[in-house]
Amino acid sequence: MGFLNSTIAILRKDILLELRGKETLSLMVFLSLLLLVVFNFAFDIDRENVSALAPGILWVIFAFAGILGMGRTSMAEKDDEAYLGIIFSPASIESFYLSKVLSNLLFLVVMEGVTLVFFAVLFDFEEILMAVPDLLLPLLAGTAGFSIVGTLFSFLSTASRFGEVLLPFIYLPVVVPILLGGVSSMDIVLNGEEGQGYGKWLQLLIVFDLLYLSVSLMLFRYLIEE
């Protein structure tokens, strides 16, 4: 079976597993809504400051809800050592890793979409939905970065007894450039002059995505060996 076909087969299995269990997405969406409510109480958000606060609030929510979801998808592989069935198959380890990145990316994008809608409703800020076409590229590039790093680290964390506790500590410092690029590009779209620095931040996101992907593809093989 070729690289593409095995990647699609594993991705399809992950989607099926999520459709059956509904564990990952529901947890991510629940946490994101909970954080929205917390931020609503923590800051005095109104029509005046909502566009300035939105990028920071949203990307922090994406990062934390994302960690939770990616931890769950890795646990599904470690549970009953199911991943060994894939490792001992014609599917390459790289296609296994990429399929997990894609499934995490898909779940993250769904969670982000729901969060954006709730954000718009909760803070009466429908402009953010209007800006989605402009936000799409940096949002996808940033989310891909989260998924690339998160997939690697969530597998790493499942090898440790304190993995779930450790995951945010090892994951968040590494995704700082992604957070920076995501927040800045969203800020430019919502508040800045048209085109002002937007391309620079998008480039930064893409460069870090490629860098993280190259390193993760090399390291993932070692994570699944004891």
Binding site: L16, L17, R20, A76, D79, D80, E81, A82, L84, G85
Partner: peptide, 8 residues
């Protein structure tokens, strides 16, 4: 372990 997906 059986290396199966319990959710499927």
């Amino acid at each position: 372990k059986n290396s199966l997906y319990n959710g499927l």
